[in-house]
Amino acid sequence: MDPSDGYRYCEQVVRSRARNFSYGIRLLPPPKRRALSAVYALARRIDDFGDDDATPADKRLAALVATRKQISDLDSRPTDPVFVAMADAARRYPIPLEAFAELVDGCESDVRGAAYETFDDLLAYCRRVAGTIGRLSLGVFGATDLRAAEPLADALGVALQLTNILRDVREDALRGRVYLPGEDLARFGCSLQRDASGRFTDPPSRLVALMRFEAARASEWYDTGFRLIPMLDPRSGACASAMADIYRRLLARIAADPLAALQGHVSLPPWEKAAVALRSLWMVR
């Protein structure tokens, strides 16, 4: 398969599955846009194995093992369009492919139903499933000082993942998953137990306090991660800024009305995402 065909497939994955990331990816010049689309498509595939509750756990774990092997064998002329594109992107950019193995580790913990007692436990998970994406993206972006940029890219990924966790508390609870640290639940006197209608039984005031505490923590990770932007070229900086700012606005909505976030899926309208992307492009220029 020609790499261009693989890239076209990956860009279609971005258009259909990356509801927030796509606004930033569009700001990149075509070569970087194609490469980052390949990174996203492969990450999306790995993540889907972790989230596919309809498939037995042993089969999902086997699929993750097989994917790990495919990543290590990118030089062996793959035929899958995602791996064809990823192999070509890895030849063109210094993408740290070992980060995909960390992402697989994180998704394996999802399949096994891991719980997180402390924030440090959760942080290790966030670094595997999202900090890795920051570092993989940095391989495409490039930076004036790669060594200094890597922990900032990792921090931005952690910030986005913490936002995802807060956005999806109800959805995850319905699937039997709790990502918020046990020590935080105890601190605020919350159990995240649900009644017959699916509503949380904890007193609303405690849930609000818990969610705002976690949102404030996530905001600190954004403060660190946004220091990455000046280290990137203008188009890469616009891409990273747009993606991060969309999520930070989402976090602000969650913090403003935690109970609404706990009752349904919070999102930004497409016009606001587009406005954020345009503003990001203007700001870095």
Rank of each mutant, 00 (worst) to 15 (best):
G142Y: 07
I95N: 11
L251T: 07
G142A: 13
D172T: 04
E117I: 01
L122F: 10
D120I: 01
A115Q: 13
V178H: 03
A63V: 08
G50T: 09
Y93S: 09
R60A: 07
E98P: 06
I71K: 07
E214F: 06
A209G: 00
L174Y: 03
D121H: 04
L210T: 06
N20M: 00
T55K: 13
V208A: 07
L162N: 12
R206K: 02
D73V: 05
T67F: 10
T118F: 03
F226A: 11
V65C: 14
V208Q: 03
T67W: 09
L61G: 01
A153C: 08
S197F: 09
F141E: 12
L268K: 00
L64T: 03
L64V: 07
Y93E: 11
A209C: 00
L123A: 10
A101Y: 11
D88H: 13
V158I: 12
D245S: 12
R285P: 05
L74H: 09
R249K: 11
L174V: 04
I229P: 04
V284T: 15
Y222C: 08
I229C: 10
K59T: 13
A242T: 01
G113C: 05
S22P: 01
M86N: 05
D52S: 15
T163E: 02
F141G: 12
L207E: 01
A115T: 15
D58C: 08
